[in-house]
Design a protein around this nucleic acid. Sequence first.
RNA 1: GGUUCCUUAGCCAAGUGGUAAGGCAAUUGACUGCAACUCAGUGACCGCCAGUUCGAAUCUGGCAGGAACCU
Length: 303
Amino acid sequence: MSYKVIAVVGPTAVGKSDVGVRLAQLFNGEIINGDSIQVYKELNIGSAKVTEAEMQGIPHHLLDYKNVGDDYSVQQFQQDARKKIEEIASRGKLPIIVGGTGLYIKALLYDYAFTKIDTELNEYEDEDTEELYQRLLKLDPKATEVIHPNNRRRIVRALQMAESGNLKSEQEAEQKHEMIYDAKIIGLTMDRTLLKERINKRVDLMFEAGLLDEVNKLNEKYDWDMHGLHGIGYKEFRDYFLGNMTLEDTRELIKTHTRQFAKRQYTWWNNQMPVKWYDVLKDGYFEEITEDIREWYCDQKTD
RNA sequence: GGUUCCUUAGCCAAGUGGUAAGGCAAUUGACUGCAACUCAGUGACCGCCAGUUCGAAUCUGGCAGGAACCU
């Protein structure tokens, strides 16, 4: 029997967190964070993390539970989130995944499988991308079909897998590419131009809310190559602290990166998963969502 | 008023006679272990007009706009 779960997805700044909480209130649910940066403690303002007040007493999981220096990745998210789903569902509550990290949510919902890789052994630092590609071509030619020759990062990963004894192509061939949960994927959207304005405004608000102070503290405590500091709203400050960029330019760069991110998120959700979109600027969109959920959740529950 | 220099895609910018590099932005897309990552596709009547030439973004003249200096 597969658990019922809801996933609230969409581009950054549409208002996913709020909808998630309201749905949790209505359907006796708990939230599981599906955002790769909000898992980190101390990254609050820049990651647009929900505040205690906004949570309205609804439990939020996988949020604010990692240290900035901790590595984190899909596989760990998948593992942790699946455990949480089981736990929440077994308490008779509805798990609601809220987040914008497409890969994470897809890996959670689908039967993505991850095996062990020995990353320590292979750094490949002194080989150029073309050589690596040629090597992969010999070890796992099939994987090569879906990785562009310039995409070093993906090539390295496939190579690491191949040299650890698991061909990436084989591993994927073994999967059914099906969802392992009975998931309802709710996509929140709005007019693109307005979303951009909203993003710009939100970044300004972050600065007003003390983003610089937050980053100042991080700068004193951590190195800039820590995983958590790779997030938009943080990484841009590196050059600022190095004296290479003005604060104003940093702010504009964050806006640009956030807008580009939103676009990438749309591309993902539109093409990777069966999302039903709801326009949050339309009257009654929330009622529409709740109706759809009722149909899918409550009715069948009484069977 | 005079002298010199500048004008190439939304922005920065190579290119000095053979039919327009590159970067950023924008836009579209890919994505199975860094994914707020990484990667790919897409764009120009070279300020305007006239001339020289087989051929001009490139040379000449004029016009317009801009910069610096001089008076």
